[in-house]
């Protein structure tokens, strides 16, 4: 479904990603792990068109998307959920969610998506009319993910959902992500440590100083880790 082929990404003069390639198959939950500042967020942003790719190519559903705008990608179901949430602080929870369905693709499923999000996170349903800035860290993460779902994603790129959450909340968050996978959404998930997502991913890549490795099924990866 998604093939990243040998991409290089720069931030000003800094070379962030060096010839990174990865594959995500339809219906898969693929993880990318690596320490902070090694280019994980940049990889997801490059895939979703939020940062420019200097060389290499990205294929989505068999078509090059390297020069597509973010709007076009969202319209085709490629949706990014940021590690720092990026909510609209002075809008209500409901308004934030409805903005997730801003484009025609999401708007078509607005009511069913809204129901799906509220089923997944009943807390958001309770706090519909509250301003996003008043939410707790866990609720904000739920809203970020929920807003992503409102765009009716085919492939959801989730950036460190555990960031700043209490351990118990992290577990619930990852459970819901696994649940999303089971309902048919393809997911590319980034985390700092393999231990967190080991239980839910199909395959894992490792990103170190902008160079990618791994990508085998998770059992093999775990063994490599222990050696």
């Amino acid at each position: 479904m998604l093939s990243v082929c040998d991409i290089d990404v720069f931030y000003d003069d800094l070379h962030i990603l060096h010839g990174v390639s990865l594959e995500v198959g339809e219906g898969e939950l693929v993880g990318v792990v690596g320490a902070n500042g090694h280019g994980k967020s940049t990889l997801l942003k490059a895939v979703c068109g939020l940062v420019p790719v200097a060389s290499g190519d990205i294929l989505y559903a068999g078509e090059s998307i390297r020069r597509r705008s973010v709007s076009e990608l969202v319209e085709r179901g490629l949706v990014y959920v940021a590690e720092d949430r990026r909510l609209f602080p002075d809008m209500t929870v409901r308004e934030n969610l409805l903005l997730g369905a801003f484009l025609a693709r999401g708007r078509g499923h607005e009511q069913t998506s809204l129901k799906r999000v509220f089923d997944l996170y009943p807390r958001l349903a309770e706090r519909q009319e509250q301003l996003a800035r008043t939410l707790s860290g866990g609720e904000a993460q739920m809203l970020a993910l929920g807003r992503g779902l409102m765009s009716a994603p085919a492939l959801l790129a989730i950036d460190e959902p555990s960031l700043g959450l209490a351990p118990k909340l992290v577990d619930t968050m990852l459970e819901t992500i696994a649940e999303l996978k089971n309902t048919g959404t393809t997911i590319l998930l980034v985390e700092q440590s393999l231990g967190l997502i080991d239980g839910i991913v199909d395959r894992v890549y490792r990103l170190e100083e902008g160079i990618i490795s791994g990508g085998a099924a998770r059992a093999a990866m775990a063994m490599a880790d222990h050696r």
Partner: peptide, 19 residues
């Protein structure tokens, strides 16, 4: 709404597909 969204968080607005 899109105007307000851009005012509150530009990257967030791009993420939901606002031009």
């Amino acid at each position: 709404w899109a105007v307000r969204a851009v005012a509150q968080d530009i990257q967030g607005a791009r993420q939901v597909g606002i031009d």
